[in-house]
Amino acid sequence: MYRFLLTPRWLGFLALTIAAAVVMVLLGNWQLHRYHQRAEVNARIDAAGRTAPAPLDRVLPAPAGTAGTAGAEPPAGTEWDRVTATGRYDAARLVLVRSRTVDSQVGFEVVTPLRLADGSAVLVDRGWIPPAPGGATAIPQVPVTPSGDVTVVARVRRSESGPGAVLPRDGRLETRRISAPRIAAELPYPVRGGYLLLDQQTPPADPAFAAVPVEHQNDWQNAGYVVQWWLFAGMALFGYGWAARREARGGPDTGAERDADRVPAATGS
């Protein structure tokens, strides 16, 4: 009854169905891997919020290079950890990071080097401010940078990838991405790897700054894709089986065949 499945046509259908199902299963497995990655990041964010901040040197050691260089990037497993550091802001070399969105508004994040006692610095993202009137790229009025010693509690971030040259603008530096190596090249001292996203500051930060939110990653979206791709794989195999059964039964019934099925078989007299 199913010997037709051994014909070249149906063997081709089978190979195509299996190949499609395998690809869909692999895509589901990849999405499952992404789900676990994002869930791990979210767990780190939550755990860091419940623990006391560690000294900066424990997570971001002092750079071994000379002026204009950045230290090693923090390990991925330490991103979002909370650390504390004390130093003095270098107000003359603050960096404006453009095209940053907070609460659906485009503005700037202000990154300022915090000079440490060992002569190095760590980049601190102090928060978000809106642009000046005239458009999203209009240079904002930056709040006064605190003088004297400052103690920060902040979260460790890795340098951002992607294009983003650091250029001088109106006596400041401006960029699109926060990259420790690129910014360090414009500074007269070595810089720790990565940067810090400010949580708290002593003395308190200027209220003109809006805190840059610590956003959890959407791991459930990846979980939905896992179910979607695996369901598609099952549907492909089911579709092949349904088509084979339909073929074995002779294709779709005609109206005459359905009527014939309803007529009782004749009996002998």
Results as ranks from 00 to 15, higher is better:
Leu26Tyr: 09
Ala180Lys: 11
Ala39Tyr: 00
Glu73Arg: 15
Leu173Met: 09
Gly255Thr: 14
Ser99Val: 12
Val110Pro: 10
Pro190Glu: 08
Ala260Trp: 14
Leu237Asp: 07
Glu257Ser: 10
Ala208Ser: 09
Thr7Gly: 09
Gly148Pro: 02
Val110Cys: 07
Glu160Ser: 03
Glu73Pro: 09
Val166Arg: 13
Glu109Gly: 06
Ala91Pro: 05
Asn222Cys: 02
Asp81Val: 00
Gly49Pro: 02
Leu114Ala: 09
Leu197Glu: 11
Asn42Glu: 00
Gly49Tyr: 02
Gly68Val: 15
Met235Val: 14
Asp253Arg: 14
Glu257Ala: 15
Ala180Arg: 12
Val110Arg: 13
Gly234Asp: 03
Gly224Thr: 01
Val156Arg: 04
Thr84Gly: 08
Thr137Asn: 08
Ala21Asn: 06
Leu173Cys: 06
Asp259Gln: 15
Gly77Glu: 12
Ala243Gly: 05
Gly239Pro: 03
Arg44Val: 00
Asp170Ala: 13
Ala154Gly: 01
Pro113Asn: 14
Gly107Ala: 11
Pro55His: 15
Ala62Thr: 13
Gln217Cys: 00
Pro181Arg: 07
Asn42Pro: 04
Trp229Met: 03
Tyr240Leu: 14
Ser120Gln: 06
Ala85Glu: 07
Pro181Asn: 11
Ala15Pro: 02
Val124Leu: 08
Ile178Lys: 10
Gln228Tyr: 06
Thr151Ile: 03
Thr137Glu: 11
Val83Phe: 05
Gly135Thr: 06
Arg126Asp: 04
Phe209Asp: 01
Leu11Lys: 04
Thr51Asp: 12
Pro181Leu: 08
Pro213Ser: 01
Phe232Asp: 04
Ala233Met: 10
Asp81Phe: 01
Val102Thr: 12
Arg34Leu: 12
Ser159His: 04
Tyr225Ile: 01
Arg3Leu: 04
Arg176Thr: 10
Gly171Tyr: 12
Pro168Val: 10
Ala91Asp: 14
Val124Asp: 03
Asn218Leu: 00
Gly194Asn: 11
Ala256Ile: 13
Leu14Trp: 02
Ile183Met: 09
Ala184Thr: 10
Ala117Phe: 06
Leu173Ile: 06
Pro74Phe: 09
Val59Tyr: 10
Leu56Ala: 10
Pro204His: 05
Gln217Lys: 02
Gly162Asn: 09
Tyr35Thr: 02
Asn222Asp: 11
Pro203Asn: 06
Tyr195Ile: 07
Pro61Tyr: 10
Ile18Tyr: 05
Ala117Asn: 07
Arg38Glu: 01
Leu26Thr: 03
Thr66Trp: 03
Ala205Thr: 11
Leu167Met: 15
Tyr225His: 02
Gly68Thr: 07
Gly127Asp: 10
